[in-house]
Simulated scan of single mutants.
Amino acid sequence: MDRSDTDIFAAQRPRLLGLAYRMLGSMADAEDAVQDTFVKWRQADRALVANAEGFLTSVCTNCCLDHLKAAHRQRVDYVGPWIPEPLQIEAGSDPERDLGRAQSLTTAFLLLLERLSPRERAAYLLREVFGKSYPEVAAVLGVSEQACRQLVSRAGRHLQDPASRYVPAADHQDRMLGAFLAALESGSTDRLAGLLSETVQFSSDGGGKTAALRRVLEGRAAVAKYVARIIGRLWSSGRPKLLDINGLRGVAVFDGSRVVTAMTLGYDADARIDRIYSIRNPDKLVRLTRPLRHDPESGALWQ
């Protein structure tokens, strides 16, 4: 492989990483898929590669599909709810514009992708997030253009959940997080309940490796009570810090220099908190202190 081939891959790597993370919900798995893509790029006969970007996208997508098969088997035995790995995403120069375009990184959206078949997920992301044409997506997946359109259409119907679509302004997110932390510190169930929608859900991912609720808790009263009494106690000795997590403002709780909890929120159309995601699995928190850059136009992620 000569220098130009290496440069071609390096230029495409952030976009491939953005695709792989959205496909897999895990940066470790995404990095593995991108590395597998690089190996296959090195082995490819350049005379048969007419479009390097298309070739790399196709290889990376299919590597992700292989990873999803293995991940499905592993998640059958996963302890408690599974939540995607949180990432600290640096805010861009235009926060309001970036908020809307980063919707495909939010925890709520990534969890909705879990409802899709692997091929539906790939087709939807390539078409709707990465802007590939239907013929390009069909070529990547090895299906007809008509079948590709059906995959994207089915995926779109599954993703019609308002919780994944509403992204409030950054200042509203900061106000809600500030009020949430103040209510948590006070231990007031009523103050917490006032921030929550009636249909709020609380999910906690400990992976069986640390204390976490092993079921999804639903309803304003139950969630407010649990957060005030249990989360308040778990966070009492930690140091919370506001971070930009997966396209939204979130909270990381530190024990010294180590992150022990990452919390992100989802909002309903009235801008009330409708989803609370608490990630406590230590394996998913090791990268949170290393910010990533996100290009809203291309979906690329830079480490």
Rank of each mutant, 00 (worst) to 15 (best):
S164W: 06
T6A: 12
L301T: 01
I245R: 07
D36N: 15
R127E: 03
L285F: 11
G206Y: 03
E31C: 11
L141R: 02
S164G: 15
I89M: 09
A169R: 12
Q201G: 04
S278F: 10
E297Q: 09
S186I: 05
H67C: 12
D45S: 09
L112P: 00
T106K: 08
R97I: 10
A44W: 02
S144I: 08
G250P: 08
T261C: 11
L24P: 01
N62R: 15
G207S: 08
A102Y: 00
A228S: 11
V251N: 00
A221Y: 13
A169M: 13
D2R: 15
R13I: 04
V39S: 13
S164F: 04
S164M: 08
T6H: 15
D190T: 15
F130L: 05
A52D: 09
R121C: 00
V260S: 06
D171S: 13
N62A: 12
K209N: 10
T289E: 11
G18D: 07
E136I: 03
R101E: 05
M1G: 14
A44I: 06
Q35T: 13
Y21T: 00
P118E: 01
L301S: 07
A10W: 15
Q12L: 13
D36G: 15
S204P: 00
L19N: 05
G208R: 03
S117Y: 03
A163Y: 06
W302G: 03
S197A: 15
L110I: 06
G266V: 04
P168E: 05
V200D: 02
Q150C: 10
H67W: 07
Y267Q: 01
T57D: 04
V216G: 08
E85W: 02
E90Y: 10
L192E: 06
G194M: 10
D45H: 09
S26W: 01
D77E: 12
L17M: 11
S4I: 13
R258K: 15
A300D: 02
R287D: 00
A28S: 14
S26M: 07
A182R: 10
E96M: 14
